[in-house]
Computed example of a mutant assay.
Amino acid sequence: MKAVRLHAYHRRPVVEEVPEPRATGPFDVVVKIGGAGVCRTDLHIIEEQWAEKSGVTLPYTIGHENAGWVHEVGSAVSSVEVGDTVILHPTPTCGLCRACRAGDDMHCSDGTFPGITTDGGMAEYLLTSARACIKLDPETRPEDVAALADAGITAYHAVRKAVPLLPPGTVCVVNGAGGLGHIGIQSLRALTATTVVVIDRNPEALDLAAMLGADHTVLADGKHVEAVLDLTGGDGAEVVLDFVAEQGAQQDTFAMTRRAGSQFVIGYGGKLEIPAIDLISTERNVIGNLVGTYNDLAELMVLAQTGRVTLHTRKYPLDAALDALADLGHGRVRGRAILTP
């Protein structure tokens, strides 16, 4: 089968032939990929940012946002059958550790992360487990929902955590209206009555944000912090969802939070430097976010399949994976790039 393989950091991946995976374990599931999302994390992987944390051995197949059809199942699998349409939670889990039993399965002590710690889904087939599979309406096209498996669940998970902080009358700032941010906007609209302020440096992204329900849009032109403070009477927002968190954005978003407000760090790449006295004197919070739970993804798919959350995509054939990565890196993708093997 064809797969997008990374052979060396700081070098372009290659599309090459590799053996098809097989379901050898009792709970294994092999999925025929119908859509694989192209994520900024894939760029960070190529740049070696994940090498120490993942411990992966090169070469391997990238791609951690995957949906498709069940192709083969292990002997003990009863939750899905060959032919089922599925979206895959990004971290196949054990189901036995304390985190899994508490429903916090994204922190499974024995989980894997296809596309980061093991072979991923920018390929014709992917080996995963029954615990990662969420069945979809058979009429759902995998390429239309694949990126919800990471971009979607990550944005939804952050919003889900922020919901108790966002009763009517509050303000939530969404910094970055790209692949994750445009899902965050829709999740806020579906789950809260907060006032949504969206910041982006790209006017086209702001147009999309307005179409998706943003109450206010602000161009990131160097005066955006002041603009948010003006919109909030000088106080700042109760919650800021930072889907950028690099190139200074992480410092700006902290400056936009009000006293006792919360900065949710979802994007990454930068370093956040805050004097401790600024935290204790204002009781502001900085909260990290990593993907989400199986239940988060299941809830998000309900919103998606009822039309309350839609994924804006640009599709590429698998052979054009390098073009998709380049377009993402140069800011030419609105929404999410999707590979269709």
Rank of each mutant, 00 (worst) to 15 (best):
G184I: 01
L165T: 09
H182V: 08
A209S: 08
D221M: 07
A210N: 15
V159F: 09
R189C: 14
N202G: 11
V159A: 10
L148A: 03
T154D: 02
P203K: 05
D207Y: 06
V173K: 04
L180T: 04
A190D: 01
A205W: 02
A220H: 07
R189W: 05
V196H: 04
A177N: 08
K223F: 03
G213T: 11
I199H: 05
L219W: 02
L208A: 13
A155H: 02
T217V: 14
E226F: 03
K161F: 03
V225K: 09
T195E: 15
A158Y: 07
P168K: 13
A190L: 09
Y156C: 07
K223C: 13
S187C: 14
I183M: 08
A155C: 09
I185H: 02
A149M: 02
L191N: 08
L219F: 01
D150Y: 00
H182F: 05
C172K: 05
G222Y: 11
N175D: 13
G169E: 10
V163T: 08
D150P: 00
I199K: 04
A205D: 01
L188M: 11
V198D: 06
N202S: 14
T192L: 04
D150T: 05
V198T: 15
P167G: 06
Y156N: 06
L191A: 12
V173N: 05
A149S: 12
A205V: 07
G184K: 00
R189T: 09
L212H: 00
